[in-house]
C-alpha cells in the first residue's frame, strides 16, 4: 500500500500530521475548557458530589437577579466605551504616524510602549495619576482649584469607571494603531494619490478611500480588544466601584467562596459572559459583512 501511495496523498498526509499538534492543543485545552464550563454551568460536577445535569437553576437564579443585569451592563459599558474611544484615537493616529515628520521613529516607539508592559503596570499608573490623592488631584490643588482631595472629581472606585476605561485605552491604542499602521503600509498611497488627482477633498479621501481600506484592520483589532475588555478582571477589581462588580469579578468572587455550589454559580456567570460576548461579536461581524457587500455592490 505504502509503495503505491501517490505523492499527492503523501503530501496531504504530511499536511495533516503537521496540523495535528496545533489542533490537539487548541481542541484539547480550549475545547475542553468550553465543554467542561458548559457542563458545570448546567449542574454537572460529580467531583463536588453534585450531579443535577441538566439543570438550568444556576442560570435562572442568575438571570432573575437584577444585580446580574446591572453587572452585565457595567461589563458591556466598560468594554464598549474603551473600544470606541480607542478606535476614535487610533484611526487618526495611525494615519498621522504614516506621515513623514521629525523623529517619527521615536514617537511611534514611545506610543507603542504600553503594548509592551503588563496591564498591572497600567493600573499602577492610574493609581498614582488619577486617584483623589494622585498627581492630577495634587496639581489641581497646586493651581488652587481644590483645597481637599475629596473635591477632586472621583475617577477611580466609581461605577462611572473612567479609570478602568482610561487604562484600557492607554494599553489598547498602541495595539490598534500598530495593526492599522500595518494595513496602511500595505495598501500604500496609490489610491489616495489617485483620489487627489481626481480632486477629492481630504475629508472625502478619509471617508471614501482610507477608511474603507483599513476597515478590515479596524474590525479585527476592535474585535480582539472588545473581547479582551469583556473578560478583563484586574482593572475592574482594583479600579472599579465595588458591589455590584463586573461579571469577571463576580465570577471570581463566586469561585473564591468556600461554598461549592457558588462555584457552579460562578460557572454560569462565565458561560453567560462568553455567550454575551459571542453574540456581540457575531452581530458585529455580520454587520461588517453586510457593509462590505453593500460596498461591493456600489
Amino acid at each position: 500500500m505504502m509503495r503505491t501511495a501517490s505523492p499527492a496523498f503523501m503530501q496531504n498526509l504530511r499536511d495533516v500530521v503537521e496540523m495535528t499538534p496545533l489542533l490537539v492543543v487548541l481542541l484539547g485545552l480550549f475545547g475542553g475548557a468550553l465543554v467542561l464550563g458548559l457542563l458545570q454551568s448546567f449542574g454537572y460536577a460529580p467531583w463536588f458530589g453534585i450531579n443535577e445535569f441538566p439543570t438550568t437553576r444556576y442560570f435562572e437564579r442568575l438571570w432573575l437577579s437584577s444585580d446580574f443585569w446591572f453587572s452585565l451592563g457595567l461589563t458591556l459599558y466598560y468594554a464598549f466605551a474603551a473600544t470606541l474611544i480607542g478606535l476614535v484615537i487610533s484611526v487618526p493616529l495611525s494615519i498621522a504616524l504614516s506621515k513623514r515628520f521629525k523623529a517619527s521613529r521615536l514617537f511611534s516607539a514611545l506610543i507603542r510602549l504600553p503594548l509592551m508592559v503588563p496591564y498591572t503596570v497600567g493600573i499602577a499608573l492610574a493609581l498614582v495619576m488619577l486617584g483623589n490623592g494622585g498627581l492630577l488631584s495634587r496639581m489641581s490643588a497646586g493651581l488652587g482649584l481644590i483645597d481637599d482631595p475629596s473635591q477632586f472629581v472621583q475617577i477611580l472606585k466609581t461605577h462611572g469607571g473612567c479609570g478602568i476605561i482610561l487604562v484600557y485605552v492607554w494599553k489598547q491604542v498602541p495595539f490598534m494603531t500598530l495593526n492599522l499602521s500595518a494595513v496602511l503600509a500595505r495598501t500604500g498611497d496609490d489610491t489616495v494619490e489617485a483620489a487627489m488627482v481626481l480632486g477629492a477633498s481630504s475629508r472625502q479621501i478619509f471617508w471614501r478611500v482610507t477608511l474603507p481600506q483599513i476597515m478590515p484592520g479596524i474590525v479585527s483589532a476592535s474585535l480582539i480588544c472588545f473581547a479582551f475588555n469583556i473578560g478583563a478582571f484586574e482593572a475592574p477589581l482594583i479600579l472599579g466601584g465595588g458591589y455590584p462588580d463586573t461579571l469577571p469579578v463576580l465570577a471570581w468572587r463566586y469561585f473564591q467562596d468556600a461554598n461549592y455550589a457558588f462555584q457552579l454559580q460562578g460557572m454560569a456567570v462565565v458561560v453567560s459572559l462568553a455567550l454575551v460576548s459571542g453574540l456581540f461579536l457575531a452581530a458585529y461581524l455580520q454587520g461588517y459583512r453586510r457593509f462590505e457587500r453593500a460596498r461591493g455592490r456600489v
Binding site: 460536577a45 467531583w47 463536588f48 458530589g49 468556600a258 461554598n259 461549592y260 455550589a261
Partner: peptide, 12 residues
Amino acid sequence: TKSRAKQMLLAS
C-alpha cells in the same frame, strides 16, 4: 459542611 464540600474536588 461548607469547607468539606469545597475540598471534595481537591480531595479526589
